[in-house]
Simulated assay, not measured.
Amino acid sequence: MYNQKNFKQVDDQIRILESRGMIIPDYDRCKQYLLTNNYYNIINGYSTYFQTSTGDDQYIKGTSFDEVCNMYSFDNEVKQTMFRAILNVEHHLKSIFAYRFAESYPDKRYSYLDINCYSNEKTLSVGYIISQLSRIINKQKKYPNNSIHHYVNHYDDVPIWVIIDYLDFGELVTMIDCVPKKLQNKIAKDLTSFIKDNLPDFKGQFTPEIMISLVKNIRETRNVCAHNNRLLEFRCRADSMYFPAIYEKYNIKPNGLRKRTFSIFLSMQCFLSKTEFAVLSNTLRKRFKHLSNQLKSIEITEVESLLGFPDNWQNHSTIVQGEI
């Protein structure tokens, strides 16, 4: 037997919130907000952070509906900010990968469909990515007015720098993970220009293993943002590999947690220009500061903890945003 959740009118939903101690500053505005934003997403997703520890669904004294809405908006704004930065990460990776792959196989048609152009240790993943690339070409060549159709019909080949724009981030990460170590080393070496730009004192090594580990967690975070899932409390499936250049500065130890939003944010210094990372950092800082001014019943440090950020992170100084 299942306990069925019966439909409730918005007025009934508001009465439930009030019975649990939530303050409704503007009844009509609350009603419209719940109607257009989904009670389940707002209340079940974000009001729990304002509840007491008694386990009876009661809210902390003084909790208002506006605070819950501000928390919901904050999570959305952070996701949008992270997503924009991740698009830049994806752009840089696609450009570097396409160049280095083409350089490695300059005279081979459809080189990325050749199993010999990949690592022998990744047979299953190689089979998957070759299948995906073939599917993309077979689909796109049917339609005129796109670059794949043009190259297939005029050159009987689609260069890597053309098909790369048709790959999603997951397919790109799989390709990087599957190419030979020599090629991965070249990509990682190219990315050190970003690391040195953001961390001028960097003199260590950026290995392919660290690069791929960081990129995989960036990809997981990207999917949360793109699918509009809740970023608060999100954790990647595994900790990224320890990279002292970015983690030591923030006192993150080798045995510390590296699967939260904060560590993903830090890792993007390896894939963004100094200006791009400054925009990301300063925008997030403003988002935290704005929410801090809106909260009354809980502290901003509690929200920072939900994303893995250190206490009072929003009070850190801004990073100078120069020219790209």
Rank of each mutant, 00 (worst) to 15 (best):
Y2S: 14
N3I: 09
Q4A: 05
F7N: 10
K8Q: 13
Q9C: 02
V10L: 08
D11H: 13
R15E: 15
E18R: 13
G21R: 07
I23K: 08
K31M: 01
Y33E: 01
I43T: 07
Y46P: 05
S47N: 11
S47M: 08
T48G: 09
Y49V: 10
F50V: 03
T52P: 03
S53D: 13
Y59N: 07
I60A: 01
K61W: 03
K61I: 11
G62Q: 12
S64W: 07
V68L: 07
V68R: 00
N70W: 04
S73W: 04
F74I: 08
M82I: 13
R84W: 06
I86M: 08
L87I: 05
H92S: 15
L93D: 07
L93R: 03
F101A: 01
S104L: 06
K108A: 13
I115P: 00
N116E: 14
C117G: 15
N120S: 15
E121C: 02
K122E: 14
S125L: 15
V126K: 11
Y128H: 12
Y128L: 08
S131G: 11
S131P: 03
L133Q: 08
R135G: 11
R135K: 14
N138F: 07
N146V: 02
Y151W: 08
V152M: 13
N153M: 09
H154Q: 13
H154L: 12
D157E: 12
V158H: 01
V158T: 06
V158M: 05
I163H: 01
Y166P: 00
D168C: 07
G170H: 02
E171K: 14
T174V: 13
T174W: 00
M175G: 04
V179F: 05
V179G: 02
L183A: 08
D190Y: 09
D190K: 10
D190Q: 10
L191E: 00
F194C: 14
N198T: 04
L199K: 09
G204T: 01
F206I: 00
T207A: 05
T207S: 15
T207P: 09
E209Y: 05
M211E: 00
S213W: 01
E220C: 06
E220H: 09
E220I: 04
N223L: 03
V224K: 03
V224W: 06
H227D: 02
N229H: 12
L232D: 03
F234Y: 14
D239H: 14
D239P: 08
S240W: 00
I246F: 01
E248P: 05
E248K: 15
Y250P: 11
P254D: 05
N255W: 14
G256W: 07
K259G: 09
R260W: 03
F262L: 06
S263T: 15
L266E: 05
L266G: 01
L266T: 09
S267K: 00
M268V: 02
Q269L: 04
L272V: 07
S273G: 15
F277A: 08
F277N: 04
S281A: 15
T283G: 03
T283C: 12
R287V: 04
F288I: 13
F288H: 09
N293W: 07
L295Y: 10
K296S: 15
T301N: 15
V303G: 06
E304D: 04
S305D: 11
L306G: 00
P310F: 13
